[in-house]
Amino acid sequence: DGDMSPSVSTAELDHLVQTISKSHLETCQYLTEELQQTSWQSFLQAEVESYQSKPRELMWQLCAVKITEAVQYVVEFAKRIDGFMELCQNDQIVLLKAGSLEVILVRMCRLFDSQNNSVYFDGKFAGPDVFRALGCDDLITSVFDFANSMCSLRLSEDELAVFSAFLLLSADRSWLQEKLKVEKLQQKTQLALQHVLQKNRREDGALNKLRSKVSALRSLCTRHTETLSAFRAVHPDVVRTHFPPLYKELFG
C-alpha cells in the first residue's frame, strides 16, 4: 500500500523507536540476562517424561496459565505504546484480544534455543516432546517452526519491540470503531520499523520478510482457538473451573 503515510521526521522516528523499545524491555517478562543465568538448561529426560505422563487437562491448564501470565505483560506493553491509550476502550480491547497471542509468539523467539529446538517453559528449556500430553502435536510443531524462523532473522530487541507494536496496532482487525485512528498509528509504527531496520543496516527485504510473518501468526492464533474449542468440547468443566478467567475471556 504505497499511500502517502503521515510525514514524520527522522528525529520523531528515533524517539518513537526508543520509547517503544523502552516499553518492550520494561514489560518483556524475561530479561536476556536472566535467561543467561539459567545457562539454557533443558529438562532432564525424567522431567520430560513427567510432563508427558500428566493428564491432558492438567497440561492444558498449565499452558493456559503460562499464556495468561504472558498476556498480562503484553497488556502492559500496549498501555505504554504512544497513542494506544488514546484509542477508545472498545478498540483497545479489540486490538489486545486479537493481537496479544501474536506478540507472545513473536516474543517467544527471545526465549528460544534454536540449536536444541527448545523454548524456556516452566523454569527450563523444553523441546516439543514436553508438550505431547496436550494432544496437539501438529500445532506445537508449527509453533516451534515459527519460533525457529523468527530466530533466524536475528532481530535485535528494538526491532522486536517495534514489530510487536506494529502487530498490535493492526487496523484490519474486525470490530474496530475508529479504524482510521488505528491505521494512522500503524502507519507511523511501520515507518518506525523501516527506520530501525535501515538504521541497523538490514538488507532491503527485511521489512517484507517481517510482514510475511503476519499471515503465519494469524494462522497459529486461529489454530490455537480451534484447538482450545475442541479441547473444551471434551472437557467443558475443566475449562470452566480450572482455566484462568482472562484466558477464557480472550480465547474462549
Partner: peptide, 17 residues
C-alpha cells in the same frame, strides 16, 4: 465488548504497573 471482557478492561484501567 467491554462487558464481555471485564478482566481485560480492568487491566487496561489499572495504572501502568
Amino acid at each position: 465488548l467491554k462487558d464481555k471482557h471485564k478482566i481485560l478492561h480492568q487491566l487496561l484501567q489499572n495504572s501502568t504497573s
